[in-house]
Computed example of a mutant assay.
Amino acid sequence: RSYLIMRLMLIWIILLRMPPTSEMETFAEIDLSAIRTNVKAIRSYIDPAKVIAVIKADAYGHGAIPVARILADDVMMFAVATVDEAIELRQAEIHHPILILYNVLPHLIEKAVIQKITLTVSEAELPKALSKIAQRKNRDIKIHVNINTGMNRDGAQCNQAVGFLQWLNTLPGIMVEGVFTHFATADKITNTELDQQLYRFNSVIDKLDRLNLLPTIVHAANSSAMLKRKDTHFDAVRIGLTLFGLNPLVGTQDFLPLQSALEWKTRVISTEEISVGEGISYGFTYRAERPIHIATARIGYADGYSRLLSNTGIALIGGKTRKLAGQVCMDVSVFEVDNSVNIGDEVVLIGWQGNYHIDAAQMAKKIGTITYEILTGISKRVPRIYRD
């Protein structure tokens, strides 16, 4: 209890040292209470399955350490992409089980084992190395097995998976704790490919069960599959996007309300009036067709605001939707406004301002990408401010 109090005091000291958002030029504001609300709603929906919280890529740009702390009481395990991501959590005294979702390179194996990080295996060399370490350290090492049911990115081939797990169970010191697959098309309207992958996965699971080799944790569902198909839940769902209040599917918000946890904001740093025919920003890709007022905001591609938004992006300024004029620069972008906008005014890139709202999905659609890329692309130059 005393340790927890000390940690909370440290967080408050850090927050007190941060300037108020009214003094910051550009920042992302993270609502931790929204993340807590989301995970509890998800837990209720998937019960009795558990949650494996995917917090790779700095928790999709939300901050892995604060997010892990807020989720700890509601999830069975965290999942990340790299050994460095896992070690960052361990160094922050996150003691929950942590699963690395992909094969790791040989020189990183011992590093992961020392930190009691669970590794994913899909071929023979990694578990052989782990078995040698386990015998040397006289301890069991937990692993999860990735089965390729059709995504063809990685994983043990379906037709070899049962034999592979039989062999793994003969290796000294190796404890096969989990088995999983990953769906390639769960976010699509049609279920043909998902049905095919699920059929293949169930076939492997059934064979393992008959051989008394079924691991204790079977997981397959990402956020999309979790929302649309309860037959993908198994022992645990492996989710990221929905934890942060973003719905990858259309039409599911009614039965599982989610609260968006991130708002991305900046401020107007200058205003100006432009005459007819004047160009704006690099290359003069925008020219004024009439006299207009412009506002320069302190946001650019070095902050993760994509250059592809040039001449197409929007922001909320002064309670209205404003269009981006010209090229996004490294540090600043220019928006067409009116004379009511002043230096210091708030610019909302993602979030609410009055009755208007912009979400990450809208931004992604404008540049032909996905919500995940928008969120993970917000650079470390943008400070994260946490509210609870």
Rank of each mutant, 00 (worst) to 15 (best):
M363S: 11
G163T: 07
G304A: 00
Q166I: 02
A360E: 08
L4Y: 11
I52H: 04
N152I: 08
Y286D: 02
I65A: 04
I114Y: 10
S223V: 01
L243V: 03
T190L: 13
V382C: 06
L198E: 10
H96G: 05
A156N: 09
S131M: 11
D303G: 01
R210S: 14
K228P: 01
D359I: 08
D47I: 07
Y305L: 12
D140C: 08
Y305E: 04
V337G: 00
F180D: 00
A129G: 08
N103W: 03
L171W: 07
I46S: 01
L308Q: 12
Q259L: 11
R139V: 13
N222W: 01
A315M: 05
K230V: 02
E263S: 14
L8P: 02
L130S: 10
E278A: 15
I269C: 11
R43C: 13
Y372H: 12
V39K: 00
A225C: 04
Q353P: 03
L119Y: 02
D140I: 06
I42H: 00
G173R: 13
I374F: 04
E193T: 05
K128G: 12
K365R: 15
D74I: 02
D388H: 14
G173M: 10
N355H: 12
K320V: 10
L227Y: 04
D31F: 05
H219F: 05
L246H: 10
T216D: 11
A325C: 10
E278M: 14
K380Q: 13
A360T: 06
I141K: 07
L316Q: 06
A79K: 02
V80K: 07
R90A: 09
I374K: 05
F201C: 01
N191D: 15
F201S: 03
V113Y: 10
G245D: 05
E93L: 11
Q166T: 07
G354K: 07
I94E: 08
I117D: 03
D338K: 14
W12P: 00
L101Y: 05
E93D: 15
I109G: 09
P383Q: 07
T376K: 12
V337H: 02
N38Q: 07
D303K: 03
